[in-house]
Amino acid sequence: MNASDTTSRRWLWTGLILTGLFVIVPLLLSLAGRSYFYQIANTIMIFALLAASMHLVTGVAGLLQLGHAAFYGIGGYGAALLATHFKLSFAATIPLAGLMAALIAFLVAVPTMRLVSIYFAVATLGIGQMLHVITLNWVAVTKGPNGILLFGGMKLFDIDFSKPVPAYYLVAVIVAACVYVIHRLSHSYYGNALRALREDDQCADAMGINTPRLKLESFTVSGFFAGVAGALWAHTAGYISPADFNFNVSILILSMVVLGGLGSLPGSILGAIILIGLPEVLREFKAGDFRNIIIGVVLFGVILFQPRGLIGEVSALDFIRNQFGLGRKARSDGKQMRVGWL
C-alpha cells in the first residue's frame, strides 16, 4: 500500500459520507415528500451532534455525564432568548449559544473535576436538575412550562433557510462541521491523552499529562457543541420548552453513546440514528409512544449483552486508522499495521 492509495481511500470515505449526507438522504427525503420526514432528519442530525459531544467527554475522556441535556438546554434557551429578546440574527445566535453553554460547562467543571466516576456523574445530574428547575420556574425569562416560540425563522445573509430543504442543508453543514472537529479531537494524540485519563488518571498525570486541564477542556468543548445543538433545535423546531431538555433527554443521549459503543464516534452517531429513528419507524406501525421504554430496554440490553456497543472503540479506531488513512503505517515481523495518528 503506497501513499497515494492512503490518500485516495481517505477521499473515498469522506466522499461517501458527504454524498450520503448532502445528496442521497435529501433525495430520499424529497421522494418521501413529507415535511415531517425532514424534521426527523434534522432531529437525528442534532442528536448525532449531541451524542458526538457526549462521546468526547464520556466515551473518550471517561467522565460519566448525566446532565448533558443541561448544556443542550442552555444552548436552546440561549439561542431563543437572543433571537426573541435581542433580535440577534440566526448566524450570531448559533456560536453565541455554543459559547454560553461552554461558559456554564466551564464554571460547572472547575469545582467538580476533582470528583471521579459515579460522584462526578451524580454532580452532573444534580446540576442538570438545577438548570431544569430554573428553566421551569424562572417564568420572567424562560416563560416557564409554556416555553418560548421563535419567530423570524432561519435567515442567513438575507436568504431564508426556513423551508424544509434549505433547513436540512443548513443543519447538515453545521452538524458536519462540528462533528468533524470532534473527530479531529478524538482521533489524534489529543484523543489519546483523553483516553489515558479515562483509563487511569493518576498514571496519566505521572506521564506528564495535565489531567485537570484536559478534563476541563474536554468538558467545556463538549458543552459548546451541546449548546450549538440546542440552538439548532430551537431554530428548527421553532418552539422550546423545559421538557425538551429534561433528565430523560440526558439519558437518551447517554443511551446513544452506550449503544454505539463508548469511545466510538461512528458508534455514537449510529446510536443517534437508531434511537431517534427506531421509535419513528415503530410509530408508523403502532399507535402509542413507546420511545422511552424502548430506550430503557435497549440501554439495559446493551450494557448486559454487548458492553462494547454496536461499534466498539477498538474496531472504530481501527476503521478510522485504516479507511481514513489517519494511522501511521508500520511493519514488523512481516506484520503490517497502522498505529498512532497522523
Binding site: 494524540y189 489529543y190 491523552a193 489515558a196 499529562i209 469511545g263 477498538v314
Partner: peptide
C-alpha cells in the same frame, strides 16, 4: 499501571504526549 483498553502503541504515545504538552 498500563492503560488496558488502548493499543500498545497508544500507551507509549501517552509518555510522548506528556512531554510535548499537547493541548486543544
Amino acid at each position: 499501571r498500563i492503560f488496558p483498553n488502548i493499543s500498545v502503541f497508544d500507551n507509549v504515545t501517552v509518555g510522548a504526549i506528556g512531554h510535548e504538552n499537547i493541548g486543544l
